[in-house]
Each structure stands twice: as C-alpha cells, then as structure tokens.
Nucleic acid binder design. Structure first.
Lengths: 264, 264
DNA sequence: TCATCTTTGTGCACGCGTTCACAAAGACAT
DNA sequence: ATGTCTTTGTGAACGCGTGCACAAAGATGA
C-alpha cells in the first residue's frame, strides 16, 4: 500500500472513523462485483471474505452508516452499493486535473480506475511546451500557464500531481491557491499545505522499502526460532540472496550486513 | 496514499513498530537530501519538519533504533543515513520482477524510484506474446511462462503486480509458489496469500474515493456551522459540483479495469 | 402462534500509536 | 570547574482501532 494520509489527524468526520472510510471503497468494489452477478444479498461473513477483512470489523464499519442489514439474512447488495456510494460522495461528478504528464502521468490518465465511479479527468496539464496539444488518453495536454483558468472553469476541487519531485510543491501551491482542496500526490516529496486541504500520497519507493524491511527480517529470524509456516524455499533464498552468480554481483555492503544464513 | 498493508497484523518485528517502519523511508529521504547538501547534523525539530512529522514522534521512532543522537547537538546525518539504510535492508541488493507491462507497468519500470536504493529490476514479464522481446526501460520483456525460472535464477523475493484485476490472483499464486514472499500489488483486487507472505497494495481508485469523501464532507458542513478557514471558493464549488453536463453518463465499466494488455 | 435457527449490531477489553512534558546528557563559554 | 543552555530520550496518559462474544432481531417452518 502506498499510503499515508497527511495532515488532518483523523478528523472523525460525522462519526465515521478514518479507518472505516478507508475500507468503504473496498466494500464497494466487492459489492459491485456481486451486483453484477445479480446476487441479491450477502452476509457480513461472505462480504468480509471478499473484501479481505474481519467480519466483525465489517459489521462495525457498516454500523457507522446506519442499520442497513437484516438479521438472519444479511445485507441487500443494491441498497448497500447505493448507501456507500452516497456516503463516499460518488453519486456526484468529480472533475479532476492531473499535472505532470510524463511516463507515470500518462499511464495514470489511461488508467480506467480514474474514469469510473464519478471521477472525470477534466484536464491534463504539463510544463513541457512540446507536450501541449498532444492527446493522451484522448485528452489534449494543456500548458501549465492555464492551470488557474482550467480549475476555475471546470470547478475542480481534486488535483493529481505526477510531476518530478522538484516541481511538486510549486504545483501544489498553485493548485491550492486556485481552489483545489484535495490532492493526490505521486511525487516523492512531502507537500506542505494549509489547513483544510487534504493530501494523500502514493510513493512506490517507500512501499518497496517497507517490503524490503520485512523481507530482511524474515530472512534474519528464520533459523533463530523456526517460525512455523513459510515454505522454506523463499526463506532460504532470501537468507542467501547471492545464490545467483553474476546477478547479485556487488553485495559489498559495509559491515553489519544480514547475518547470512545462520544455520539452525 | 494508496495504501494498506494486508495480512500480518503488525508483527512488531524486533521491537520496531510497524508505524515507525513506514516512516523510516521518509526520514531517509530527508536525510539523503541533507547529506547531499553536506549538512553535518540535524536536530529532531528540523528533520521532523523536513519529513512532515511531529518531532516527538521522530525522536521516539529513532529511539527504537538505538541512541544515535547527541543531546544539545542533534543527529549526525551520515551516520543516521547508514543506520536507517541498514535497518531497512537497503545495504543489500533486492532483485525484483514486475509482472504486467501495460501502461502502468511500463511507467513503473521507467520510474527512477525503483532503480534507486538497492532495488534492481531483474525482469519484466507479460502474458502478451507481442510484447515479448520489446525493450521497456532498457529491459526486454519476457514471457510469463518463464516466470518460475526467472525468479529462481535471479533469487527474486519481491514481486510487483501491475496486471489487470482479473489476472492478479493467478499471477500472485505463481509468484508465491515460485518463492516470492513480498508483493507490491497495483491491481485493484484483494489478493489472498499464505502466511509469511507480505502484500502491500497501491490503489489509485481507492485513494480518490477517500479524497472524495472528505471533499464532500467539507462542502456539506460549511454553511451548517461555518467551520472557520477554508477559502469558500472550493467549498461553494464542491457544493454544486454537477456543473458539467453529460459527463457522468456511461458508468458501465465493472471496476478498475486496466486498459493494458494481458488476457486472463 | 411458537420454536428454532441464522445473522446482525454492539458492549467491552485490549493493544498500538501519538503526544505531552520533563529529567538526563552533553556542548560550550567563562 | 562550574554553570548555562540546548536537545535528546522516555515515562505516562490518552485515544483510536480491532476483535471477541453475545444478546437482540427477524426469518423460516411446523
């Protein structure tokens, strides 16, 4: 998960916990799939399994929205889809602008997940004049000088930043000044914004580093305690990652490098 | 933040809280920037500001790593960079494979954040035969039938999934069976994996939905209480978002369907 | 109508994470 | 040496999130 809300210490909106809000889209996705298969109702147990969460947690989450279930039966799929969509604000149209149409930006623009569920790409913006006018995902790229006008004319309140790190804060400032109050940041930088503006960040590098931490730990602890499960194959390999010849090459790491294997 | 660790209920590794681990990459980035500017030391206050966190939290985070600071002075930048890198396992080489080289996958492969800090793209894999052999980011795409062999030969323990939702679980199963024990998932699906395997997910659609929720809330509450701050412009606009005409139309697509290649 | 069975909704307890506030530690000047 | 000043490291309190376990609600069948 590339994640991380910034700012706004879980404002506990109108009683709905932040953690619950973060799971609603997950439930919605599972429910939509059921809806397409014309399944009329689901139990908390089934839906929880589909969403990958605990059933008690799911029931508690739904309890914040109201009592939409029927004891002995479960939840009405269609009704729940509607309620969650409404709660998330997906029953209305959300025009968004994306700034920075490089490799990542272009890929995101093409990504279907953006277009679905009420989100509409109102404009693609870049600072490279040679990009201007070129259509990406069917939408012509516009020049950054028009950013303020575009936001104003389209009533945009959500912006996506996919620029290089160096330009992110500057772009962010302009977006906020122009009226954007929610930002999804793909640039590897910490953005500082005034109160009232929400920033969520997606950082590939950070996600990988977190995985590496756990991977290293798995490699290190096994052998020590034996930690049930885990099909040795992976553990062994991770413990002695230099198995492959030329591949791993370097591995010069200073000193305190992984306790290398460590026989039981 | 596209986020969400799955599984593994915060195993509290060797005393380092999960929340702290998630922040270490942030500190590392800020420290690296300072290091490049040849700054010798930083106080917890300065570094916290750069990383966008509370200074007390930062000090407590570092306290889990040991006592690396000097009272009255601060932390030695170089030393801290090394310690955090080591703790995160970045002093060793981590070969990774990426499966699903569509729009998003290609963009990720080109993304510099992957190559840096010990991560090395060992292979790009796709199920579309017409993609095979074509170089992406300088690396020729390989066919998915060779997945197991590639993982074995390169000692890969971290995999990145950027396939369409429908293919994700299947790819995941193969990766895990081949020995991969950490997965970064960009497909909009819940992956189920055996114990011992870590999954982190990055879901653009979910992030946007969370932002929409807060945006809706901001628009709704103002007017009711007045809730200080917030430059009306955005609030007013969000309150009457249906400005655009047809737009929302279609609404058919199941869910986050990646346009990209790859049949099931 | 009544009994049984399924599934929700939630009270409660526990643990993690955050923040405050301060004592201890060391640098630095005199 | 000694005092002052800065900054760390952490004890303690608090709040959020999670999961258990169960009572209440309603469906279903006789």
């Amino acid at each position: 998960m590339a994640t991380g809300r910034t700012h706004r210490p879980a404002t506990r909106s109108r009683g709905i916990p932040e953690a619950t809000v973060a799971r609603l889209p997950l439930y919605l996705r599972a429910l939509t799939a059921l809806s397409e298969r014309s399944v009329p109702t689901v139990s908390s147990e089934e839906l929880a399994a589909a969403a990958g969460v605990n059933s008690a947690k799911l029931r508690k989450d739904f309890s914040y929205l109201g009592s939409y279930g029927t004891r002995g039966v479960g939840y009405d799929v269609e009704y729940l889809v509607y309620q969650i969509s409404r709660e998330l604000g997906l029953t209305q149209d959300w025009p968004i602008v994306m700034v920075g149409i490089g490799n990542l930006g272009a890929a995101l623009a093409n990504y279907g997940g953006f277009a679905s569920r009420g989100f509409r790409v109102a404009a693609l913006i870049d600072a490279d004049p040679s990009m201007v006018g070129k259509p990406v995902a069917g939408i012509p790229v516009q020049y950054i000088d028009d950013l303020e006008r575009i936001i104003e004319e389209n009533g945009v309140s959500i912006g996506v930043i996919a620029t290089p790190a160096g330009a992110a804060q500057q772009v962010c400032d302009r977006l906020v000044a122009a009226g954007v109050s929610s930002i999804l940041n793909f640039a590897p930088t910490v953005l500082s914004v005034p109160d009232g503006v929400d920033v969520r960040k997606v950082d590939l590098s950070i996600e990988l580093q977190i995985l590496a931490f756990h991977e290293q730990r798995k490699a290190g602890e096994d052998g020590a305690v034996g930690e049930a499960g885990l099909p040795s194959a992976a553990a062994v390999r991770a413990a002695a990652p230099a198995t492959a010849p030329a591949a791993t090459a370097g591995r010069k790491g200073p000193d305190g490098d992984v306790p290398a294997v460590m026989p039981a």
